[in-house]
Design a protein around this nucleic acid. Structure first.
Length: 374
DNA sequence: CCCCCCCC
């Protein structure tokens, strides 16, 4: 006899198009017909496919050789709609969407009419959709294409997703499709810049930490403009990619139009890792904590481009050594409230060779300074 | 795709 539990999974995919009892008796009939050559689950799948219903697939089972697929998933990111000219001079349009279910996530390209669903607001973040498309190997892994012959329908039942956020320490250069949950430990200003093609871009940075480490996050264009986060917020990042910054030699997380960042209620632990002063190398960012063992005056100077700036130098000591720290710009004013013996933490200062072959720290715009005791 | 890391 067939128990309903064994075939329940398959039954669910039929989305209530027939009663459980009807389905069960069809499966039992199939098992008898197969003369015991298949188990009840296989029989259930045969019945489902004979019913001519679309068999939906889980995202983790989507493979390059699948061709046409149907899956039910949640929209977890929507990119910008991109228009382009075809060789026949007609205009095409495409938008990238990331879908997720309880087994993984996948990128989809919606072409032409399908992309209009985003434009008119029929497809939005967080919706659960049934997607029919075909699989193609894209530049960054598998991609679902929804064009002619494809289809998108809304489904009532919300899809549960399991995005398995990556721990910050496990992020390697070149990775894409990254999901991360972290706490904001620093924010930056939005900057505008000119691209080679003459268009204006926007960019801003955040530093994100979790219990394994921290990472600098770069938000581009619409993601930069809409960034409204405060230090201490927990955020979830969807569909970022990692690249090495050639200046700092550190991995950074990039978030463009195909990704998403949103506030989250998850509690995230983060604690700063301090390097002992004796262990500081060069050409990398370090955080140190110790007491002030030397103070210098503020000095104002002109940069080569004519703008003015100021700097003050202090010395910081811990149990292992003493290092000179240059406090640039606004940080320079700190000398007015510090004394010999003040306790201080300097976070993310850049180490470089100073004068007389000693390493020194540079505390600039990316550095945070905490005075623990004046 | 941007920005750095400058003084004496």
């Amino acid at each position: 006899m067939v128990s309903f539990e064994e075939i329940e999974e398959v039954y669910k995919r039929l989305e209530g198009r027939l009663k459980p009892d009807e389905f069960k008796s069809m499966v039992e009939e199939k098992v008898i017909m197969m003369n015991g050559l298949c188990d009840s689950k296989t029989a259930a799948m045969l019945v489902a496919s004979e019913l001519g219903l679309n068999e939906t697939i889980k995202i983790k089972d989507i493979a390059p050789d699948k061709g046409g697929v149907v899956f039910i998933a949640k929209v977890i990111s929507i990119g910008d709609i991109h228009e382009f000219s075809r060789s026949d001079s007609s205009t095409g349009r495409v938008v990238n969407i990331t879908f997720a279910d309880d087994t993984g996530s996948i990128k989809a390209a919606l072409w032409d009419e399908a992309s209009d669903l985003v434009k008119i607001g029929d497809i939005k973040m967080g919706q659960s959709l049934k997607v029919k498309g075909y699989i193609k190997e894209g530049q960054r892994g598998l991609e679902v294409n929804v064009g002619r012959g494809g289809n998108i329908e809304h489904v009532d039942k919300a899809v549960a997703v399991n995005l398995e956020p990556m721990k910050i320490n496990d992020i390697k250069s070149g990775m894409s499709g990254l999901n991360i949950i972290g706490r904001i430990i620093d924010t930056g200003k939005v900057r505008a810049f000119q691209r080679k093609d003459g268009t204006t871009g926007k960019v801003t940075n955040l530093t994100l930490g979790d219990e394994t480490g921290k990472i600098r996050v770069t938000l581009w264009d619409s993601k930069a403009e809409s960034a409204d986060f405060k230090i201490g917020d927990t955020v979830e990042i969807i569909n970022g990619y990692a690249r090495e910054n050639t200046f700092s030699n550190q991995i950074e997380l990039q978030l463009g139009s195909g990704g998403n960042i949103m506030k989250s209620n998850t509690a995230v632990d983060y604690s700063e890792t301090f390097t002992q002063i004796a262990d500081i190398g060069i050409n990398s960012a370090y955080s140190v904590t110790g007491h002030v063992s030397g103070l210098d005056e503020i000095r104002e100077f002109d940069r080569p481009d004519g703008t003015k700036n100021k700097v003050s130098n202090i010395y910081v000591s811990d149990d292992t050594g003493r290092i000179r720290v240059a406090l640039w710009g606004e940080h320079a004013e700190l000398v007015n409230e510090l004394d010999i013996g003040s306790e201080i933490s300097i976070i993310d200062a850049f180490a470089k060779p100073g004068r007389n072959e000693e390493i020194e720290l540079s505390a600039g715009a990316r550095t945070r300074i905490q005075v623990l005791r004046k």
